[in-house]
Design a binder for these strands. Structure first.
Lengths: 341, 341
DNA sequence: GGGCTGCGTTGAAGCGCTTCGACGCTGCTT
DNA sequence: AAGCAGCGTCGAAGCGCTTCAACGCAGCCC
């Protein structure tokens, strides 16, 4: 701690302990057996000198930077808390595997990915907010760098993906309402822009909702919707104008949840007596809404965690499943019940 | 692109261009003059071989990793969008200076900082959500690593800090209402936990609010408040019970803003006819609230940007201001006016 | 026309670590 | 008693880049 540059090197530790540099390295990595006496001597030298391995040198020599890149486009119409929860889960899990997380935001687009891959800054990449036809995918396909997508692109061949099974999620919501006896449902979805961008999860949910509704002979109206109060009021208004018999609503649009409940209240429709509501979104939103919502949770934490675990497996050259779809699970709370009458 | 390891090295470029490795390096860095002919030859070799410098080797040789660590504790009671806005501004600005951002979340606590510093993973650190008596500060003080705090600790000696001048902000809000003629104000603040943790910005705002109120002879009631509807209803109820003559409210608590407006409405108090409201928080929340709010913006972007710029200056061994307090500016919108009567 | 300056280029020495091959030694077998 | 295996340690060669000192050469001055 008395030096000027502030850095004790492995060589100094070796000198202090009276061993060679490689021995110190092997003590640290455990890749060769070391006699207890030497090990102790080295470890004590490390402690008294306050040695910390230099990450840069280590990265160069071992061709492992212990860095995981997380690419998070952060579009304004994506619900931030879920993104953050995933990011935090990624960071935490990465740390538990000895890795740190490099944050790539969306501004640079595919260029950021190209840069990180070409310069071998990171050992692996995790991509969030994957679009159906994502321009980052070709880069990944022609690269050796382990990559995991959170979300499902249109053609996921040769890529590893983790996601909630949104198709099954949509189906599950419809099933639940149908079982309760509802025959006319509305699906209040994400903002129009999300569909226009061909965001996988939104489209897959719609597919699941629609096909199960068809199978079960339930009428369904799908309406994209912005998250603000006015948009919700408008959307709900049109829905009930067009289908006055609607008794069940599935909503996949986090910011819209509270406004939706408030509009229903103002319209004099009681939840769940007049209208049942099933939400798709983070657990806490559903549980803490002004009416406790029956919902299918988006398991943000699990998605982040699994993505990292898959990336680590890939790094270790272990076989990795190509697609890991998490099965949805519906929690019944206070917002769903039999239709009136 | 035909090799197996996927990496063209500088040496290969040099060979291809018929020059020495150092020449290629100087072409890349521009640190020495190079004849136009050689430069062109090298550049064309770089292009045809598809060369990209290896970040790890560069980091080791130049003792610059081009990585900026961003430590973001992410407490649950901090308002996420502001954190994210800062983080994105940090990432963007860092990129414009050729740096990438390493994300450190709070779980590891000061250990993460120690690790990053000791291993020289990053060139500099930016710390968010600084507490009055932050345990990360001693580490920073005894280290050479350039660091910038976003927020102001209790004793900022020898540390570089960027923040909104929250004391002036509080004062400014009170002034505005006092000038309009209000004589009894309430300050609806952050959650109790935020004050208990001695979060600098919250305490400084209170100081500013209180001292200016005193100076101007205005009565003031400060009430911490959680962000949910029930808490707001309760808090406002008590405020008007205790001080029925209250005509102005300053609110520094983002999630509480909408509930607050809604409670006032329900209480039959018109904004701004009966009660004026001034908010402290992000511009978009104020502008898009159900009543367009007079507010002092928390300039998240600017804070992130300045923090990076200061870090870069410090890296370049330029003198760096110790504390950079951003002056508040109040935007008058539809929520403030003269008191009734 | 000899000495200087300064430009363009080079070779070599690192940066701090990992890792491979080799080597001496102990203790066992036959 | 010779041979062999395996353990513990070491030396050296990188990893791919930056950077310093040095050097040849052209052009300048007086």
């Amino acid at each position: 701690m008395t030096d000027t540059t502030g850095a004790v090197t492995l060589a100094e530790v070796a000198r202090h302990a009276g061993v060679s540099a490689s021995t110190v390295s092997y003590v640290l990595s455990g890749k060769r057996s070391i006699s207890p006496s030497t090990r102790e001597r080295v470890e004590s030298s490390i402690r008294t000198l306050g040695y910390h391995p230099n990450a840069r040198a280590r990265a160069l020599a071992s061709s492992r930077s212990q860095i995981l890149a997380l690419m998070m486009p952060l579009r304004t119409d994506m619900y931030l808390p879920v993104m953050m929860e995933i990011a935090v889960a990624v960071a935490t899990t990465a740390r538990s595997h000895g890795h740190d997380v490099l944050l790539l935001t969306g501004e640079e687009g595919p260029a950021a990915l190209r840069r990180v891959m070409a310069s071998s800054l990171a050992d692996a990449v995790i991509l969030m907010d994957v679009e159906t036809d994502d321009e980052r995918l070709p880069l990944l396909r022609e690269s050796e760098l382990p990559a995991v997508l959170i979300g499902l692109p249109g053609s996921p061949d040769r890529l590893t993906c983790v996601d909630l099974d949104f198709e099954a999620t949509g189906a599950l919501c419809v099933e639940h309402l149908a079982e309760l006896g509802h025959r006319e449902l509305a699906f209040v979805g994400e903002a129009t822009a999300v569909y226009e961008r061909h965001t996988g999860f939104a489209e897959r949910t719609v597919r699941g909702v629609q096909s199960r509704a068809r199978e079960l002979g339930v009428r369904l109206l799908h309406r994209p919707c912005d998250g603000d109060y006015a948009a919700i009021a408008d959307t709900l208004g049109r829905i009930f104008d067009e289908r006055p018999g609607t008794t069940g609503v599935v909503v996949q649009n986090e910011p819209a949840v509270e406004p939706l409940l408030s509009v229903l209240r103002r319209q004099g429709r009681a939840v769940p007596e007049d209208v049942s509501v099933v939400a798709i979104g983070p657990e806490d939103i559903a549980a803490r809404a002004s009416v406790r919502l029956t919902s299918v949770a988006v398991p943000a934490q699990e998605m982040g965690r699994r993505a990292v675990e898959l990336a680590m497996s890939a790094l270790a050259r272990q076989p990795v499943p190509r697609q890991e779809l998490i099965a949805p699970s519906l929690t019944v709370r206070a917002s769903s019940g039999p239709p009136p009458g």
